[in-house]
Computed example of a mutant assay.
Amino acid sequence: MPTKTRILNSLCAALGLVASAGFQARAAEPYYELPADYAACSDDSYQRAVEHGVKLGVAPAMPWTGVDPTSGKAIGIDVELNAEVLKRMGITKLTYEAGAFNSLIPSLLSKRIDMVVTDVHVTPDRAKTIAFSGPVWWYGPALVVQQGNPKGVKTFEDLSKVRVGVLLGTGPDEYLKKVGVSATRFQNYAEEFAAIQQDKVDAVVEYDLLAADFKKANPDAKVESIASFKMPEDLLKNGYGYARFGLRKDDCSFRTAYNQALAEVRASGAMSDLLKANGLSDRNLFVFPLELK
């Protein structure tokens, strides 16, 4: 396995992105992202993977996945979590192919790669073409504001009163469209975070991990994240569900074995250990916060 990525250790305090803080994400009724899958498998995709190994698709999207420029090895949280599951399956020969995120699903369908390891979220369009692993882990939303929060943004409802920025085509973008919040849309993260520092927008809606990674790389940037807010229940259905990996629908036996191994890795505590090694916590195992009584 690649060296553990360390992404949030010194950062959480500065940003207020402690994984357990603020997110009240459990819906009033259970929400299932995918229907139950009870396929009877007759293919040999799992056996082939054990014998010949698998090629895994990753995008340059740290802290999720990337390629170490010195060693050339794949790195990132998703790389580590996936490798642990494959080890449980008895699959030890792993190769990686890097490409733009929007190229990974086409590569999967053309059998250029065997899995999409840069995590993907369930969307209706994706569900038409690929299969998904079971829930791997979860990361939530961040409301990034100018230092000192001069506009007093405290909730998602406040976004309708301020100038909002978002990355085009992302889950946050889809959510803002759904709820009718006007936003300036950016082509890349650099433009997005530059805009809030240049007072072109008052708030940016992002993933907490990405906001944290930006602040880590730019400690003097005059931005901060709202540490505690109530997450709208319908946000789970619009880009903030579980992080999963992408699989081919035809690879029935491989998918079945993978999901069994994934469940065991989560239950064993190994998943928890890997998350904590990356500065996260058990909060990132579930969409909803656990209540221990």
Rank of each mutant, 00 (worst) to 15 (best):
G53E: 01
P2A: 06
F288R: 06
P219S: 08
D213Y: 10
T155V: 04
D282V: 11
V145W: 00
P69Y: 05
D202K: 08
Y31M: 11
R48M: 08
T118F: 03
G134A: 15
V179F: 02
Y175W: 14
H52R: 14
A190Q: 15
A39R: 14
G148M: 05
F23D: 10
E291C: 04
T92F: 08
P135K: 03
D202P: 13
F229I: 14
D125I: 06
D282S: 11
K200R: 15
V67N: 03
R266P: 06
L15I: 07
A25W: 00
S281L: 05
G134Y: 06
E224S: 07
D208W: 07
G165H: 02
T118S: 13
L167A: 08
L104T: 09
Y31A: 06
D173K: 00
A21D: 05
N9T: 12
D125T: 12
V162F: 09
K215W: 05
E157W: 09
A19F: 09
R126K: 11
K230D: 10
E29T: 15
F23E: 09
E192H: 03
H121T: 10
Q187T: 13
M115C: 10
A257M: 13
R185E: 10
A212S: 14
L109S: 03
V265G: 13
N218P: 12
D44L: 07
A49T: 08
K216C: 12
N278G: 15
Y38P: 00
D114A: 08
K4P: 07
D199N: 14
Y207I: 09
S45M: 04
F254V: 00
M1H: 04
G180K: 03
L56E: 02
K237D: 14
W137R: 02
E80Q: 11
D202S: 11
V18S: 02
E191Q: 15
A267N: 13
E29Q: 15
D43F: 12
Y38F: 10
A49P: 11
L34H: 07
R283P: 02
A257G: 12
A27E: 04
D78Y: 08
A98V: 09
G76R: 03
D199H: 12
G134S: 13
L292K: 07
K230Y: 10
K177F: 08
F286D: 12
I91F: 02
D119F: 09
I196E: 00
T5V: 14
R283Q: 09
